[in-house]
Amino acid sequence: MKHLILLSITDFKLIFRDPSLRVFLALPLMILALVLFGLPALIEEYPVVNDYVSYVLMGACLQTSTMFGFIYSMVLIHEKDIEVAKVYGILPVSKKGFIATRQILPFTLSSLVTFLMLQLQSFYVFNLSQVILLAILSGIFAPLLTLSVSLLSKNKMEGMTWFKLMNLLVSVPLAAFFIPCCSWAFGIIPTYWVFKTLEQMTLAENIVLPISIGFLFSIATLFLLIWRFSKTHFS
């Protein structure tokens, strides 16, 4: 346990000592502030925006996770680039366990900010347990993005390119809500189920089906990525 706490502290130190990553750490908080304070002010000025609040919330939830995902993917890509990953490969710890526990911090931070955003926003009154579940589901996308971007990239430049592409891909299911006839087709992208769950919540409808599919889909993808990552990152 001691080593994992120290590793989390080290990850934080590395982020804080890198000026570019430090800026990204502030972005999820800026998104939170925009939703809590900026969006109500915007609606007051332009009431038409009110019709699109649920979509703004969907995008904001996901961007929170993708920001933390981006930051931690840069940490992992950098350690692969400077070959520190090799040192982790010879440490007396389970590789898969090590990867999984290292994702706890980005997952927790993403879930926490998403929870605060959904709980404190002033447009809908959500059930607390539903908010917690959706925050957890949304938070899983931070490790999903961290692992997939660092798996695909050899260096930070490649990482940034892949991040842009992935960020675009995970946002694509938002389009589903503007073309209702074939919205389920977007279900092949895991983030669709986050958006769908949130839509059901805003309509005060049952969320069991979308959130269950969302959890199954994202956890299965997470396990697959951890397995693949453990085969490549340390050598």
Binding site: K13, L14, R17, E79, I82, E83, V84, K86
Partner: peptide, 10 residues
């Protein structure tokens, strides 16, 4: 290891 591999910012 053959090449130095440390966290430079630490």
């Amino acid at each position: 290891f053959e090449l130095p591999n440390h966290y430079g910012k630490l």
